[in-house]
């Protein structure tokens, strides 16, 4: 792209001198044209992402007093976020829940994606669409159906009871951190299947043949070729699930019970009945920064490993 413009630039300006200065600039500058093409997206981003985030940042340095917000600069909110033990405990719990959920989802999704990528030869698209079926119903509806499945008189408990495997319904199934993990893992499965499937699909099959010719068995082939080459998909899936579930509050609110509360539930309450928007903002921003650091770290580590491997 860059070569093409540098070649055509002088030609353009010399052969077509008409038009105002702005038009000339526009024609000459590759990046300006790029921004012009991006402008609708940029406008939406500025309005719907940057402005609210900026407001949150500002809010997090102010103080709530009664019904009003006093606009005096303070770091108190951040001090509270990092010293109050409740936030630390909730942070660790949230990390545990969304981390487990991301790992579990990837583990469950990998075989599905693998099967479709390697063993399905006809109507692949239909298979992929079938695997994303859960996404055809609303998120809330899926959470409620899990409530029905996991409930005291739910599908699992009544099934196990009628088989005579248990005499009392299992109570940990609902209103527990486990319930949150199960519900989230199912809800986000498609976000793991699709990137993993794409990275598996891209693998050059001749590499596998070569490995087989050189004497590798099925397991060694998988570990030495398939898995490393599908790592980009796996990492993408981990991030795609970890980031949004870290901030999820609907699922824990509905199936979490008192022990399944996550950080985002507290943030939501800060903006609701706890009536402390600045502290809520500080908490939300801290969450955002911590998650960014963790994800950046993960990407850095995988890059290091990759470079060393090469």
């Amino acid at each position: 792209m860059v070569d093409a413009t540098s070649l055509s630039e002088p030609e353009l300006t010399e052969s077509r001198p008409r038009g105002g200065r702005l038009a000339t600039l526009f024609r000459r500058s590759e990046s300006l044209r790029g921004y012009a093409l991006l402008s609708p997206t940029l406008a939406v981003m500025a309005l719907a992402m940057c402005a609210p985030t900026a407001m949150m940042v500002a809010l997090s340095f102010w103080v709530q007093s009664g019904f009003d917000i006093t606009m005096t600069f303070t770091l108190d909110n951040y001090a509270k976020v990092f010293t109050n033990p409740i936030f630390e405990a909730l942070f660790l719990r949230t990390l545990m829940i969304s981390g487990t959920c991301a790992l579990a989802t990837v583990l469950i999704s990998y075989p599905m994606a693998y099967y479709v990528a390697f063993h399905v030869h006809r109507r692949k698209l239909a298979w992929v669409i079938m695997m994303t079926l859960p996404f055809w119903t609303s998120y809330l509806l899926r959470v409620f159906s899990w409530k029905v499945v996991l409930g005291y008189n739910g599908a699992i408990n009544s099934g196990l009871m009628s088989l005579g495997l248990i005499s009392e319904p299992l109570e940990f199934l609902l209103y527990s951190p486990e319930a949150v993990i199960i519900t989230l893992a199912h809800a986000w499965a498609a976000f793991a299947i699709l990137p993993i499937y794409v990275s598996l699909e891209k693998i050059d099959r001749s590499l596998l043949e070569a490995a087989a010719d050189l004497g590798d068995g099925a397991v060694a082939r998988f570990l030495r070729i398939t898995l490393p080459l599908s790592m980009p998909g796996v990492i993408a899936a981990l991030l795609l699930i970890f980031i949004p579930t870290f901030g999820d509050f609907v699922t824990p609110a509905l199936v979490g019970g008192p022990d399944g509360m996550m950080l985002a539930n507290i943030v939501q309450k800060m903006f609701g009945k706890l009536n402390d928007w600045p502290l809520g903002s500080a908490l939300a921003i801290s969450m955002m920064i911590i998650v960014s650091i963790m994800c950046g770290g993960l990407i850095w580590v995988t890059r290091q490993i990759k470079e060393r491997a090469i």
Binding site: A89, P258, D259, L274, D276
Partner: peptide, 11 residues
């Protein structure tokens, strides 16, 4: 409200 939320969260 703050205290009750803390208690519900296990503190």
């Amino acid at each position: 409200n703050q205290e009750f939320e803390n208690i519900k969260a296990g503190f």
